[in-house]
C-alpha cells in the first residue's frame, strides 16, 4: 500500500542522510521526497511517499521515530489530507500540435512558462489523479523532458502537524 509520511526534523546537515539511510539499509524504496524549512526555521518538513505492507510500514515509522533528529512522524493515511505536486514538462510543439497543447494546458489550468519555435514548457500542479490525467493527454503529442517536485501534503480541517510541548516519542 502507498503511504504519504510527514516528518518534522531538525534543520541540520546530515538529517536527510539518516532518513535516506534508514530506507536504503532495509531495501525500501522512496517514491518521492520533499524537504524544506517549515514555519519554524529550526525545523524542516519532509514529505515522503513510499510503499509497503502494514508490518513494513510500522517498522519504518518506528525506526524514523527512533532517529535522534526526528521530532515527529505522521502517516497521512491515518487521516483526511490534501496533497499536491508540481510537474514541469517540455513538449514538442509544431504547427499541427500547438493549438491542442494550449487547449489541454488550459483545461488543466497549467501555465506555459517557456516557449521556443519547437517546444512549449508547461507547469502544472495538482493531486496525483489530475497530473496523471494531464500527462496521459499530453504524452501522444511528444514529451521531451519531465521533472516533478514530489508530493507535499497537509491534514484537512483544523488539524495541524506540530511538535507538541514535551512531546514524548514512542510512548504507548
Amino acid at each position: 500500500m502507498r503511504h504519504t509520511i510527514s516528518l518534522l526534523v531538525e534543520n541540520e546537515f546530515g538529517v536527510l542522510a539518516r532518513v535516506a539511510n534508514l530506507f536504503s539499509g532495509r531495501g525500501f524504496n522512496i517514491e518521492s521526497l520533499c524537504v524544506a524549512e517549515s514555519l519554524d526555521p529550526t525545523i524542516s518538513t519532509m514529505t515522503i511517499v513510499t510503499r509497503g505492507n502494514d508490518a513494513i510500514l510500522e517498522q519504518i515509522l518506528k525506526q524514523l521515530n527512533k532517529l535522534i533528529n526526528v521530532i515527529k512522524v505522521t502517516d497521512f493515511n491515518e487521516m483526511d489530507y490534501v496533497s499536491r505536486e508540481m510537474v514541469i514538462v517540455k513538449v514538442h510543439a509544431d504547427d499541427k500540435t500547438r493549438e491542442e497543447i494550449l487547449r489541454i494546458t488550459e483545461i488543466f489550468r497549467g501555465k506555459i512558462i517557456d516557449v521556443s519555435s519547437k517546444s512549449y514548457t508547461i507547469m502544472i500542479n495538482g493531486d496525483e489523479e489530475k497530473l496523471k490525467g494531464f500527462l496521459n493527454l499530453i504524452k501522444p503529442l511528444g514529451i521531451k523532458e519531465l521533472v516533478r517536485t514530489g508530493t507535499i501534503a497537509m491534514a484537512r480541517g483544523e488539524r495541524t502537524i506540530k511538535m507538541k510541548e514535551n512531546h514524548i516519542k514512542g510512548g504507548e
Binding site: 521530532i71 512531546h167 514524548i168 516519542k169 510512548g171
Partner: peptide, 15 residues
Amino acid sequence: NIRSYQPTYTGHPGQ
C-alpha cells in the same frame, strides 16, 4: 534537553 529525543521509561499503567 533534546526536543526530538525523550525516551519512554515508564510503562503504560493500563498495559
